[in-house]
Structure formats: C-alpha cells, structure tokens
Nucleic acid binder design. Sequence first.
DNA 1: CCTGAAATTCGAGGCTT
DNA 2: AAGCCTCGAATTTCAGG
Lengths: 156, 156
Amino acid sequence: MIDEIDRRILMILQDNARTSNADIARAVAMAPSAVLERVRKLERKGVITGYEARIDPSKVELDLTAFTFVKTDEPVGAIDTGQQLAGVPGVQEVHYVAGTAAYLIKVRAPDTRSLADLLKVIGRLSTVRDTNTTVVLQTVKETGALPLGALPQPGE
Amino acid sequence: MIDEIDRRILMILQDNARTSNADIARAVAMAPSAVLERVRKLERKGVITGYEARIDPSKVELDLTAFTFVKTDEPVGAIDTGQQLAGVPGVQEVHYVAGTAAYLIKVRAPDTRSLADLLKVIGRLSTVRDTNTTVVLQTVKETGALPLGALPQPGE
DNA sequence: CCTGAAATTCGAGGCTT
DNA sequence: AAGCCTCGAATTTCAGG
C-alpha cells in the first residue's frame, strides 16, 4: 500500500511540510508532478491528515504545559467525556488510557492562574470525578513526527 | 511584537501549514507579498519554528502510543538524561516535570513487543532509576496547535 | 508517470507613514 | 525605518495524454 518512495516523501514532509515538490522530486529522483500526485493520493488515503505550523509557545504567552489525569464515572467504552474534554480551549490532546476509567490530557495555558481556570472548567463536567495534574518545568523535545525510520532494537 | 494580523496568520498556518499566501492574503485583506513578508519575519523571530505533516499512525503501523514517567538519579537541574531520552527512536516528547526528579515522555511503537524493547533501551541508561508506563487505548484528540484564540473563562 | 497551461510564489523596486 | 503595494520571472499545480 505504501512503498519505499512514499515513505521517503512522508519523512521529508514530516520534517518540513513546506518542502517544495521540486526539492522532494530531486530527493526521490522523479518529476515534480509525480511527487505531487503521490502526495495527493496519500492525503486522500488518510495517511497524511494535515499540515501544521509549529509555534514557539513562549513567543505567544503560553509558557505553561501540563498533563492531567482525569478520572470519570462514565461506563467503560464510552468516550463522551473525552469529546467534552477535547472541546475545552487549551486542551491539545485527549487520550483514553488503561487502568481505572481515565483520560490523560495535554494542556496549554499562559500561566498558573489560567491553568487553574481550565481545571475548574474540567472539574465542573458532570462525569468527571477528579483530576491529577503534573506541570512541565522544561520541555527537552516535542515533535509530532512519527518514527518512520528505524525503531530501537532489543539489543540482546 | 505580534499584532492582530500576525495572530490570524498564525491561526491559519496552525490549522493548515500549506495554505497559500494568496488564500491567507484574502483572509486578512492584504497583498500576498505582504503576507509572505510577515511569515518570513515570524520565522526569523522564532515564533514559527517549523512546519510538520501530520500522519495517521495506524496507516504506518504505529498503533501504540504510551506515556512513560522516567525517574532518574541525576542532580536537580541537569537535563542530561533528557537529551539521551530524546535521542531514543520512537520518543516523540520529553518533558522534565515537577515532583521527584523525573521526565514524562511520549512514545510511539508498532506493538507491545516494540514498546517493551524501547523501554528496555531506556531502562539501560545509567541514570535511569525506574519507569512507569501508561498505554493509550484510544486517542480522542491530538494536535500540536496552540490555543491562540480564546482561553477558558473562570466562569465565576 | 510525463507534457503544457493556469495559478501561485516570492523577489525587486516604489509609495506612504 | 517600517510596512504595504505592484509587477514579472520562476515555480507549483492541475488537466489531459
């Protein structure tokens, strides 16, 4: 379904979504229009789901990152609460995780006061039992790029 | 430093990094070249740090997402271990978090076996004391887009 | 996957504040 | 100096073969 050339195109676009077709074409030794055709097909197949500009949070007054475990009352399998959490401004990610029915969410806020407000909004949702927040002090690495190349070897 | 037009441009590019200058120009009622000039300046100032293509993990055999707390021995303030963690293939994010000297990392793998391999590699790092992994069962929302618009209001 | 025409990019240069 | 505009050659993108 996805051949070696597609993988190389995906790696290039993950690294820089604005790489020109001409440059990609040179890298994979094809005509620019053929590259474009492959990219469009990858988009249609849902392999590429979009293109995002990455913004430095500190440059737009969003210095606070936090991860919050949200425990809920809802029946196992339902993700109603998840949808509600996803709709709260400042919530970047919502993952349903193993263990006690809970979500792990990633949150951005300008400061601790805003974070408190955000957690208050979440705490008010009817199915939310409690929350447990871990504040990030420093982010060493942060990328959406998937490991399309080599994965770690067991080693032994 | 960043005016209202810049904010609108950033919002558009966060949503779709490949939006043409012509389209952005229409949206903000300016000439395309002026938009380009602003984008270049935002890049130079470090506000825009890059452009990433988003790929559906399930379409490239990466169905497993996990968050792992990594406790270390290293002195407070050092992020040496963090750099090492960032270099492990499959590790997307590395955050130094409050509490006991620990990192929270986000990890991608094709399956549980690969995840185990990855955790084995991490466990072998000399400064790593132990790890605690939470596996994601379902991802409801996942975006790198920052909340540039409205943030949640306290409400009361 | 390649060729050719319409749309877009993005630099140069000029105008206004 | 800073910001926007118009203009035109290089590039991107789409239709068709």
